[in-house]
Design a protein around this nucleic acid. Structure first.
Length: 976
RNA sequence: GCCGUCUUAGCUCAGUGGUAGAGCACUCGCUUCACACGCGAUAGGUCAGAAGUUCAAAUCUUCUAGACGGCACCA
């Protein structure tokens, strides 16, 4: 068979996915075993606006590895794909498009038309990421693809909202919320990030005090003469001399909000201000008079100890205002400009313009005490980085108490979800839950799930599942629906069960049936179990740290609340793939690496297995060079297969050579040398299979990759192939070749045919082990092997057409682990290595053959004798002399291995000086180890307290080291 | 301020009580008939620092230093 000399990823990537998908291999229905256990994963839905980034690639790789692995094991496997509607992002895209194409605003075209265009946008651009997932090789069941605004998922949202409202867990109220003036919507606490700015300022503003003794000072606010000493200076004056100061100085970072001040507060125990409490100040730039109040909230140590109170624009001030019954004066519009309440001079000014102007006016009036530099942390909108404005607003909230307690109980009693890695995520998760605050769920957008609440002319609210139901509740009054939509995370929070068809009806019936607690859904007789019955709870959720609160925790709570079930058993939290600079990848830093470029450059499979190799849970800096390792690995696999195929004439994996023949000791019997090598590789293969399965069970993807890499490259390629090469390749003479006319490929004997089957079998199993990580390459090669067929499938997929992705994942058989074979192979390998080392150190030309002399006990001599041909070939020797003792000329290079001494006669070639230093170096190295071990063994505490087998092992090692050192020392002396 | 993570070879990282590992880079030698995306052979680390527990510490405890993350506060 002709096969290219190097692996071309593109060719394999283009030819398999379409067949896998169209043949239904990804759907759980491909599994025909009625008793098959299920395995399910739902994808964390990427934004419908999104395109694939490295975080996705990492998480998708892990999900696909798990899915393909379990599918090959015969599970009824479902990985469910989909996207979320990304309220703010889509809204912004459509607004931008509208502006650019038609220079219109959403208000110009109206809500209905806007929503229509948003859908159109979604249809046109929303499948970018799903197409990219096909490129990744993601084995998701596209027939079950979901979108958070699908009819059924929307119904679920509406029912959840209504149920929570009816039960008192959702309320509407006036609170200080995070407002993004750019997006013109409220944000939840989790969508706001703190950003530290060193260039902040703290402004000290003077508020004239209305002194009872001097009367109303309001007319004197412009007075810059006299009596304006600051309170700080006043504080130095003894209390007896204290007079009501002319000004009360407040410090603020947001001067523009003073226009909304409705009080100034001081600490009740602050002696400096005792006499001022109960008096008023004339609020500059306004005609308002506001009270000086005392409140414990004020820290007398900070600033001037006097705080301006703006209840409508600050969360703490809001609480102070509540306590003191202060008016809440809103001075800003929803776009961050000042409104009429701020006064005619400021009406319509942007908040930062207004800040400048307020400060200027204070300065003009002589009311600006000073401006200090101040490091400040500002809340910014996570998406657009706009500075978020805390503002008083009427919004919908979810009280999380009950659901929070459910989630905590689940963790406390069952340890669910089990986080991997457990530290630190479990603690962070529970701590967050314990401090959970109410969740703002309304958003001032048009794209999303419109809140199912209606208002009558008097402002009474009616929450209902439909407009008709609301109208009925309102006694037939004319109603208008709430204009807001729900937070996208609200619908994402239902994802674990809404994607399986839950709409709320079943949930309600279930609640009425009172069987919420046991997590089992009754299935009516004769009905097919629904996806919800079968696949929830899902087995594992793969996600990033950043959405544990935003999504994972909410999904756990909502799933438990509405289905009585766990959302998932395990949560695997992936690390963050950082840019080359060690910082998170971002557009602004321009340190991003595009996974699609990596696919082009190194191949999808190489990128995937590289990502799996770094999936330890820790963050990792990106490094192109490391993918190259796995591109090389892919090429290695390709070429090893190429070699096997070039020598596979007369060999076939197909029936009647069954798996039983290949997977067990029933392999075609072979005597002598071949036996050891085969027993050894089978031992290595089965150990690897067992350990890989174990690693995947524990979500230790990097361990699995490392095991596979070293098995394939070191054991299979470097040793097995080299050791059996002579046997499986034909060395026919030119005459014979002419006779057979088939380029010498036909097996020259039954033994050779068997050897060819064996190597193909090892390779085939290795490809299966690798398949979840490298789906394209392994499918491409598996299809090329002679005799691969559905016979190699897991029993659950007997009828499906042949594909490696439905083949049986090797479990590994402990009966095939052969420690004797591994020990014997170590002897052979060590011997070869010692001789190679001597060759290199002594500058023996590769073409020169040497003779190998070994002194050892009979048992060892037997093993070496049985593998003579292999040793001679790989050590480039032409003679192996075995004996009880060495009988070699003085001009020989010597070495020791465990229980054997090796000599390579080098008459005329040996450099005595070099040999002396070589031996000296080895003696020194071994001597250090001996010294340490002797120290340990002479320590009575160690001998008495350490486990006996540890002590025994060290004693053996000591004896061996002594022997080796003695031998080497004798050799060294013999040279002089 | 509170909670947490990390610090191991030149680089990127594995390694949870018993002889320090990998890939890449480096050095030397190879057109050995699968593969130069390769083969062979070397070299390279008192595991951030200090103290403690232990027969035994990269690994457990405490402290210190540095890097980072989350949460809270911030007039």
């Amino acid at each position: 068979m002709e096969i290219a000399k190097a692996y071309e990823p593109k060719l394999a990537e283009e030819s398999h996915y379409q067949r896998w998908e169209s043949s239904g291999f990804f759907a759980p229905e491909i599994n025909k075993d009625p008793d098959a256990p299920k395995y399910s994963i739902v994808i964390p839905p990427p934004n419908v606006t999104g395109s694939l980034h490295m975080g996705h690639a990492l998480q998708h790789t892990i999900m696909d590895v798990l899915t393909r692995w379990k599918r090959m094991q015969g599970y009824r496997t479902l990985w469910l794909p989909g996207t979320d509607h990304a309220g703010i992002s889509v809204q912004r895209k459509v607004v931008e498009q509208l502006k650019k194409d038609e220079n219109k605003t959403p208000l110009d075209i109206g809500r209905e038309e806007f929503v229509r265009r948003a859908w159109a946008w979604k249809e046109q651009y929303g499948n970018t990421i799903t197409e990219q997932m096909r490129r990744e090789g993601a084995s998701v069941d596209w027939s079950r693809q979901r979108f958070t605004m699908d009819a059924s998922l929307s119904l679920a949202v509406r029912n959840v909202f209504c149920t929570l409202y009816d039960e008192g867990w959702i309320y509407r109220g006036l609170r200080i919320v995070n407002w993004c003036p750019k997006d013109k919507t409220v944000l939840s606490d989790l969508e706001v990030k703190e950003e530290t700015r060193k260039d902040g300022k703290l402004y000290y503003l003077r508020y004239p005090v209305n002194d009872a003794e001097t009367g109303d000072r309001r007319q004197e606010t412009g007075d810059t003469e006299g009596g304006n000493a600051s309170v700080n200076e006043r504080a130095e004056i003894p209390h007896s001399a204290f007079r009501i100061p002319q000004f009360l100085v407040v410090a603020t970072t947001r001067p523009e909000t003073m226009l909304g001040d409705t009080a100034v507060a001081v600490n009740p125990s602050d002696e400096r201000y005792k006499d001022l409490v109960g008096k008023t100040v004339a609020l500059p730039l306004t005609d308002r008079e506001i009270p000086i109040i005392a409140d414990e909230y004020v820290d007398a140590e900070f600033g001037t100890g006097a705080v301006k109170i703006t209840p409508a624009h600050d969360p703490n001030d809001y609480l102070v205002g509540e306590r003191h019954g202060l008016p809440q004066l809103l001075v800003m519009n929803d776009d961050g400009t000042m409104n009429a309440a701020a006064g005619a001079a400021f009406d319509g000014l942007d908040r930062f313009e207004a800040r400048k102007k307020v400060v200027e006016r204070f300065e003009e009036l002589g009311l600006l005490e000073k401006i200090e530099d101040y490091e400040i942390s500002l809340p910014v909108c996570e998406r657009c980085k706009t500075i978020v404005e805390p503002i008083l607003s009427d919004q919908w909230f979810v009280k999380m108490d009950e659901m929070r307690d459910m989630a905590l109980e689940l963790m406390r009693s069952e340890g669910v979800p089990h986080f991997s890695p457990q530290v630190p995520h479990e603690k962070v998760y529970t701590t967050w839950l314990e401090n959970l605050k109410d969740w703002t769920i309304s958003r001032q957008l048009w794209w999303g799930h419109q809140i199912p609440a209606w208002y009558d002319a008097d402002g009474n609210v009616y929450v209902a599942r439909t407009a008709e139901e609301a109208k009925e509740k309102a006694g037939g009054k004319e109603l208008t629906q709430d204009q807001d939509v729900l937070d996208t995370w609200f619908s994402s929070g239902l994802w674990a069960f809404s994607t399986f068809g839950w709409t709320g009806e079943a949930g309600r019936q279930l609640a009425e049936g009172g069987s919420l607690s046991d997590g089992q859904q009754p299935t009516a007789d004769g009905q097919q179990p629904s996806d919800l019955d079968v696949f929830l709870p899902t087995d594992v959720l793969i996600t990033g740290r950043d959405i544990i609160f935003l999504w994972v925790s909410r999904m756990i709570m909502l799933t438990k609340k509405f289905t009585g079930k766990k959302a998932f058993e395990d949560v695997v939290v992936t690390g963050t793939v950082l840019g080359k600079d060690g910082k998170p990848m971002s557009k602004s830093r321009n340190n991003g690496v595009d996974p699609l470029e990596m696919f082009d450059k190194f191949g999808v499979d190489a990128t995937r297995i590289y990502l799996a190799s770094i999936a330890t849970g820790a963050d990792i800096k990106w490094n192109d060079l490391l993918i190259e390792t796995y591109r090389n690995f892919a090429n290695k696999i390709w070429n090893a297969t190429r070699f096997c195929l070039m020598n596979s004439e007369g060999a076939s994996l197909g029936y009647p050579l069954q798996r039983a023949d290949l997977d067990s000791r029933e392999m075609p019997p072979k005597g002598g040398t071949q036996n050891l090598v085969d027993r050894w590789i089978m031992s290595r293969l089965n150990k690897t299979a067992i350990d890989v399965n174990k690693a995947l069970d524990r979500y230790e993807f990097h361990t699995a990759v490392s095991l596979l890499y070293h098995f394939f490259w070191d054991d299979f390629c470097d040793w097995y192939i080299e050791l059996v090469k002579d046997e499986i390749t034909t060395r026919e003479t030119g005459d014979e070749r002419q006779e057979t006319g088939d380029k010498g490929q036909r097996p020259r004997s039954e033994d050779q045919r068997s050897a060819r089957i064996r190597i193909l079998s090892i390779l085939e199993q290795a490809l299966r082990l690798l398949h979840p990580f490298m789906p394209y390459l392994t499918e491409e090669l598996w299809q090329k092997l002679p005799g691969t067929s559905a016979n190699l499938h897991n029993a659950a997929y007997r009828d499906a057409e042949a594909t490696i992705m439905l083949s049986d994942y090797p479990k590994g058989d402990t009966a095939l682990i052969d420690e004797n074979a591994e020990a014997e192979m170590s002897l052979v390998i060590d011997t070869i290595r010692r001789v190679r080392n001597i060759r290199t150190e002594m500058n023996i030309k590769p073409s020169d053959r040497v003779s190998i002399n070994v002194a050892a006990a009979a048992e060892i001599r037997d093993t070496l004798a049985a593998n003579e041909a292999q040793i001679l070939k790989l050590a480039r020797a032409d003679k192996l002399v075995l004996g009880e003792t060495l009988d070699v000329p003085k001009a020989s290079a010597k070495a020791v291995i465990t229980n054997a001494e090796i000599a390579v006669p080098l008459e005329g070639l040996i450099d005595f000086e070099k040999e002396r230093s070589r031996l000296g170096g080895q003696i020194e190295k071994l001597g250090k180890e001996l010294e340490r071990i002797s120290g340990q063994l002479s320590n009575a505490d160690f001998v008495n307290k350490a486990p006996a087998e540890k002590v025994e092992a060290l004693r053996e090692r000591k004896t061996e080291l002594e022997t080796q050192i003695r031998t080497l020392t004798q050799n060294l002396h013999a040279l002089t």
